[in-house]
Design a binder for these strands. Structure first.
Lengths: 257, 257
DNA sequence: TCAAAAGTGTTATAAATACACCCATGC
DNA sequence: GCATGGGTGTATTTATAACACTTTTGA
C-alpha cells in the first residue's frame, strides 16, 4: 500500500487541475558517461518507487511543448533532440492501489483519484551531452540519479519496458538523426564513439571497420593526441564538424532482406 | 459553421460517455488496388468533411484494442498488421467551431462540447489485402470510399498530415514487418510487387535489380503464367511463401551514412 | 513486323566483413 | 621486453546500381 505525503497535496493539486486527465508524458533521458549508456530516473514521493521523469499535459499545451517543459523541470537544459518512441495505453496501466490514509478531506481524495487513474502515456526520449549538468529534484521527487541502462530493472510500473522501447527507437534513429551530437562530449576519441555505437545498437562492431567507415564519412575533425594517461597507446582526439555531420545523415531506405 | 444532425445525438452520446476525453485514435488504412496505393476515408455526418476513420478509447480498453475495434467497425475485418505511427497533439488540434443550432437541450450541448474539445490522437496504420471487402458506414458517417494516396488533399483537419506520417512509417517498416503479406493479393506478378515497393518508398527502383533482389531472397513461389490478357508479354504469377518471407525479415541496422 | 512490357545477364562501384599487422604507452 | 589497446591496411564477400539484351505477347 502506497501513500501520498501530505506536503505534496497542495502543489500537486494546483498543477494537476490545469492538466488533461488520463494522459501523461514519460521522458527517457539518455547520456553517455563512463563508457556506459545511462538513463535518468527519479524517485517519486508517492510510493518511493523509481520512475523515468514524467508529467502531464496542460489543457492548452502542445504535447511536444509539454515534453520539453517536463524535461526542463528535471534537468534545466534545453536539449537538442526530443523524439517520440511510442504511446502506451494498456487498460490496466495505472499506479498500484494507494492507501487512503491521510486522505480525509475532499482535496486529498481528488488527488488519490488523479494519481490512481488509468493513464495513456506518450513516450519521448531525449539526449543530453553535458555530463556535469546539475540535477535538481522537483517537489514530487525525493531523489534523482543516473543508472546504467542494463540496471533498468529497478524501475517500477512498466517503465522498464519504456526504456527498452526508447533504446530501440534510438537505434533506428541513429542513421537519420544527429544522435552523436546529442550524446558525445565536445571532444572525444574514436574508441569512445565506437563503444557508444555498440551500446546503442546493442551488438559488437569490428573496431577497424568502424574506424574506417566513420573517417570516410568525413565529419570528424582530428585534434591531436588525448592528454589522458592510458596504460596503452593513447587515442587521438576528435570533434564533430556539425554541418558535415548533418548533411551526412540520410533516411534512404534500402531494399535489403 | 458546422452542425450536428439531430439523429446522431442519441447514439453518439451513449458511445461517448464510455470513452476517455481528449483522446482519440485515427486509423490510416492502406490497400494496394489498381496499381495505386490507396487510403480509406469516411465522410463525417458532422460537418460533411472527409476524414480518416477514427474513434475514441473506452475507459477500460487497451489503446491497441480500441484501434482494432474502430477498424472493425469500419471494415468488418481482422487485419494482419496494425502499427502506431505517432501521436499528434498540438494545443489547437480540434474541430472547427460548430454551430449551436439545434443544441437547445442539455444533451446536445454536451455533445457539442465533446466534439469540439481538444484531442490528442494516436495514429495507427493498417494494411488490408482483400480488395473485394465490403464497406459499411457507421451511423456517424454518411459516406466511405477509397482514394489514391496522392489525392489526400481532400482530407480535412490535419488528416492529410496523418496520412503522410503513416506512409513514412510504412516505408520504414518495409524491411522488418510483413508488409507485402498485408498488401499483396494471394497471387500477384513481379511488376505488381515492383510498383508497390515504388509506391511505398516513393522513389523509382530499377526493374531488373528489383527482380533479382527479390528472387534471391527466395520467399516467392512461382505459379506460372498470368492468364490475364496483356498487350505485351504476360508476367508470371507468384505467391508468397509465408514462413520464408517472415524469416527473411530483419531489423539489422547498418552503419551506413 | 513492330511496340510494349516482361524476363534475364553483365559489369562496375560501393559497402560490409574478416583479419592481420604495426605502433605507442605504462609497467 | 611485454601486455594492452589504439591505429592502419588488405582481401573477400556481398549489396547497390546502371544498363543492355532477349522474349513474349497483341495489334
Amino acid at each position: 500500500m502506497l501513500s501520498i505525503p501530505s506536503h505534496v497535496y497542495e502543489e500537486m493539486s494546483l498543477y494537476v487541475e490545469r492538466c488533461l486527465p488520463h494522459l501523461s508524458i514519460d521522458c527517457v533521458i539518455f547520456r553517455y558517461n563512463n563508457d556506459q549508456l545511462q538513463v535518468l530516473i527519479v524517485q517519486s514521493v508517492v510510493g518511493d518507487i523509481w520512475l523515468v521523469p514524467g508529467g502531464y499535459v496542460q489543457k492548452a499545451e502542445d504535447i511536444d511543448v509539454a515534453a520539453r517543459r517536463i524535461l526542463l523541470e528535471q534537468t534545466e537544459l534545453d536539449n537538442l533532440i526530443l523524439n517520440q518512441f511510442g504511446t502506451f495505453g494498456s487498460a490496466d496501466r495505472s499506479f498500484p492501489e494507494l492507501s487512503s490514509q491521510g486522505a480525509h478531506d475532499m482535496k486529498s481524495k481528488e488527488m488519490l483519484n488523479w494519481i490512481t487513474q488509468r493513464f495513456v502515456t506518450i513516450g519521448y526520449y531525449s539526449l543530453i551531452r553535458d555530463n556535469d549538468q546539475e540535477l535538481r529534484t522537483s517537489n514530487f521527487h525525493q531523489d534523482i540519479k543516473w543508472i546504467n541502462i542494463d540496471d533498468r530493472d529497478e524501475l517500477s510500473l512498466d517503465h522498464n519496458t519504456l526504456v527498452t522501447s526508447a533504446r530501440k527507437k534510438l537505434a533506428q534513429d541513429l542513421l537519420g538523426q544527429p544522435v552523436m551530437l546529442g550524446l558525445l562530449p565536445e571532444t572525444f576519441t574514436m574508441p569512445q564513439m565506437h563503444r557508444l555505437y555498440e551500446l546503442i545498437l546493442d551488438r559488437s562492431i569490428d573496431r577497424g571497420n568502424f574506424r574506417q567507415r566513420i573517417l570516410k564519412a568525413k565529419f570528424l575533425i582530428k585534434l591531436g593526441k588525448s592528454p589522458e594517461k592510458t596504460s596503452s597507446r593513447p587515442p587521438l582526439l576528435y570533434k564533430i564538424d556539425k554541418d558535415a555531420y548533418l548533411s551526412s545523415l540520410h533516411q534512404n531506405i534500402k531494399l535489403g532482406f
